[in-house]
Simulated scan of single mutants.
Amino acid sequence: MVALAQGFGLLTPAAVSETLRVRVLAAEALQRTGRPHQQQELYLVIAQAAALLASASADLSLWASAMQYARAADAYGEIIGHSGVRAYARGMQATVAYWTGRYDDAVRYASAAVEIAPPGVARVRAHMGVIRRWLPL
């Protein structure tokens, strides 16, 4: 996931395809293990893949897919208690809501991202998401 995330900014079909493949592999592995530590790591991989796919979908203006992936990332992040993934997912939900004209929802999602973001870069990004919503295009 680290390598995928680092190279994902290029948004090539290969990167998206590989992210989908990793997500499917992690989901299959999740079905085969009963070990909590392994399950947590696999849920994190699935959540991260969903977050990347939400971002890619939003970049392509595939708003329904972007929202679906962002919701999935948030749900998996909640399962494992990963506030960073959840904050990113809420930020993606805010982005989708904003670009689809649902401004009140965008503010609600962005505010939720700020509330759950862990200290550090994640919190700064979440705050910037709230500020960006109020700037003119």
Rank of each mutant, 00 (worst) to 15 (best):
Met1Val: 13
Met1Phe: 10
Val2Trp: 12
Ala3Leu: 13
Leu4Ser: 08
Ala5Phe: 00
Ala5Glu: 12
Ala5Leu: 07
Ala5Val: 08
Phe8Asp: 01
Gly9Trp: 15
Gly9His: 13
Leu10Asp: 04
Ala14Cys: 01
Ala14Asn: 08
Ala14Arg: 12
Ala14Pro: 00
Val16Asn: 00
Ser17Ile: 04
Glu18Asp: 15
Glu18Met: 10
Thr19Cys: 12
Leu20Tyr: 12
Arg21Ile: 01
Val22Leu: 15
Leu25Arg: 15
Leu25Cys: 11
Leu25Met: 14
Leu25Ile: 04
Ala26Thr: 00
Ala27Ile: 03
Ala27Met: 09
Glu28Phe: 00
Ala29Thr: 10
Ala29Ile: 02
Leu30Phe: 01
Leu30Val: 04
Leu30Lys: 12
Leu30Gly: 07
Leu30Tyr: 07
Arg32Thr: 06
Thr33Pro: 05
Gly34Thr: 08
Gly34Asp: 06
Pro36Gln: 08
Pro36Asn: 04
Gln38Trp: 10
Gln38Glu: 14
Gln39Asn: 06
Gln40Asp: 10
Glu41Cys: 04
Leu42Val: 04
Leu44Gln: 14
Leu44Ile: 07
Val45Lys: 07
Val45Gly: 03
Ile46Arg: 14
Ile46Pro: 08
Leu52Pro: 12
Leu52Glu: 11
Ser55Tyr: 15
Ala56Gln: 08
Ala56His: 04
Ser57Val: 02
Ser57Tyr: 09
Ala58Glu: 13
Asp59Met: 15
Leu60Ile: 03
Ser61Ala: 15
Leu62Tyr: 15
Leu62Lys: 15
Trp63Ser: 13
Trp63Gln: 10
Ser65His: 13
Met67Tyr: 08
Gln68Ala: 15
Gln68His: 14
Arg71Asp: 11
Ala72Thr: 09
Ala72Arg: 10
Asp74Ala: 13
Ala75Ile: 06
Tyr76Pro: 05
Gly77Leu: 02
Gly77Tyr: 01
Glu78Ala: 13
Ile79Glu: 06
Ile79Asn: 00
Ile80Glu: 04
Gly81Ala: 02
His82Lys: 06
Ser83Phe: 01
Val85Lys: 07
Val85Glu: 05
Ala87Trp: 02
Ala87Ser: 12
Ala87Glu: 08
Tyr88Cys: 03
Tyr88Phe: 05
Ala89Cys: 02
Arg90Val: 00
Arg90Ser: 03
Gly91Arg: 08
Met92His: 03
Met92Cys: 07
Met92Trp: 07
Gln93Val: 04
Ala94Asn: 02
Ala94Val: 02
Ala94Glu: 03
Ala97His: 09
Tyr98Lys: 13
Trp99Phe: 14
Trp99His: 13
Gly101Arg: 11
Arg102Lys: 15
Tyr103Gly: 05
Asp104His: 10
Asp105Trp: 06
Ala106Leu: 08
Arg108Asp: 08
Ala112Phe: 14
Ala113Trp: 01
Ala113His: 05
Val114His: 00
Val114Gly: 00
Glu115Met: 12
Glu115Pro: 03
Glu115Ser: 15
Ile116Gly: 05
Ala117Leu: 09
Pro119Cys: 04
Gly120Lys: 11
Gly120Ser: 06
Val121Thr: 15
Ala122Ser: 14
Ala122Pro: 03
Val124Phe: 11
Arg125Glu: 07
Arg125Leu: 15
His127Thr: 08
Met128Gly: 12
Met128Lys: 11
Gly129Tyr: 02
Val130Ser: 02
Val130His: 03
Val130Met: 11
Val130Cys: 02
Ile131Cys: 01
Ile131Ser: 09
Ile131Met: 06
Arg132Lys: 09
Leu135Pro: 02
Leu135Ser: 09
Pro136Asn: 05
